[in-house]
Write a protein that binds this DNA or RNA. Structure first.
Lengths: 208, 208
DNA sequence: CCCCGATGACTGACTATACAGTCAGTGTAC
DNA sequence: GTACACTGACTGTATAGTCAGTCATCGGGG
């Protein structure tokens, strides 16, 4: 009973080591080649294990893919929450969120590519539901923005507008600037891009 | 000499008939399944011809894909230009462009999916260059917006800002709202979405 | 302290399948 | 009877997933 929560057996350690190694390799390979072009052999090679080993820890190529994706999303999400808690006003929060997201993308370019490029591109899973799960994860991100907007509207810092749509629009801008950066089209510093987005958005949504 | 430009031989007519039929089928199939999951057999079946026939008119699956994509982009582009020419002020132009693009996406959902979902996702072509061609087509769209912004800045209707970045941001919002619509998350009328986007953007970029 | 058998993590050759692209043959129109 | 658009069975290749076998580690008995 306590064992399952407290004690790491040797097996646990090995499993953790392998899964994280494979996940890291998968992230890189998928980012570089995309889901379909990446082969399990590629991932195995990048992780320094044999193909069979991948299947000891993951059921399928798809499974690896989603595990890598979820890991990244979870990591980013908790980072975003951390940053949001440091800020107080809606204005600060919005700026913090933009900054944190851009920074995360910048540091995890391979994740960015998987997250957005392949998003919505994976064939519908046979038993259905994976697409929905995907969309849910995606919407969750936008909902962080929406919460800020609602708070801002309550405090009269933001004019009244369709918060859900606006939240998506803001997320889309962040995505777009992120793409710009990743593709190497933008030579600006992150902080400049953050200021730019915030400026544009804030003028668009501020009260009065 | 004149024949090549003026007279449609019977062969030309057949070719046109076949290519457009295949292209239309390809658009649907690619939109539904994505590039990799779609098979040439699927496309042939959807077009009501045998697989071999597809290869009489196109060199490869990729070739079909790009033909379908380029056709859609070209069509959309000329539509956008038409609408832009009807408008006079930068304000009108921006609104016209948003409206035209959303309308086109709404009427060509399968094109939308190909254009955005798969965009940037096709493996780098072996001889290189296809990715670049893609990016060029993508940038061309944003440049339409950029031209409006620059005109607006000249006429002092728009405050001075980084036009290129802003143009991309606006394109990203349109893309985002389009996604929203396509996924069925938005039940609004197109005109409502247009007003929403325009309102948000204009407040963000207007002078004063 | 050493040997030896058991455990299980790991391997990679192999199988089954799917699919892009080909081409010899068919049928129709003129 | 000939030209040629069209067909679809066939080929070659790529690769997801499997599984019989290897080897390193460890624990217990001599």
């Amino acid at each position: 009973m306590t064992m399952t929560t407290e004690i790491k057996t040797k097996k646990d350690v090995v499993t953790e080591f392998r899964t994280s190694g494979i996940l890291e390799a998968a992230r890189k390979v998928f980012a570089k080649k995309g889901f379909h072009e990446a082969t399990v052999d590629d991932i195995a090679e990048a992780a320094g294990v044999a193909k069979g080993t991948v299947y000891l820890y993951y059921e399928s190529k798809r499974d690896v893919y989603f595990a890598a994706l979820k890991f990244g999303i979870g990591q980013m999400y908790s980072l975003l929450l951390d940053e949001l808690h440091k800020a107080t006003t809606p204005e600060e929060k919005l700026k913090a969120l933009i900054a944190a997201k851009l920074a995360y993308f910048d540091e995890n370019r391979d994740f960015f590519k998987i997250y957005y490029s392949e998003l919505g591109n994976i064939p519908t899973a046979h038993p259905a539901g994976i697409d929905n799960e995907f969309q849910a994860l995606y919407q969750e991100q936008a909902r962080l923005v929406e919460a800020i907007l609602k708070e801002g509207a309550r405090k009269k810092a933001i004019r009244s507008l369709r918060t859900e749509q606006t939240a998506f629009a803001i997320s889309d801008i962040i995505r777009g600037v992120g793409t710009h950066r990743i593709l190497g089209w933008s030579k600006s510093k992150i902080s400049q891009d953050v200021d730019f987005i915030f400026d544009l958005v804030w003028k668009g949504i501020a009260a009065q």
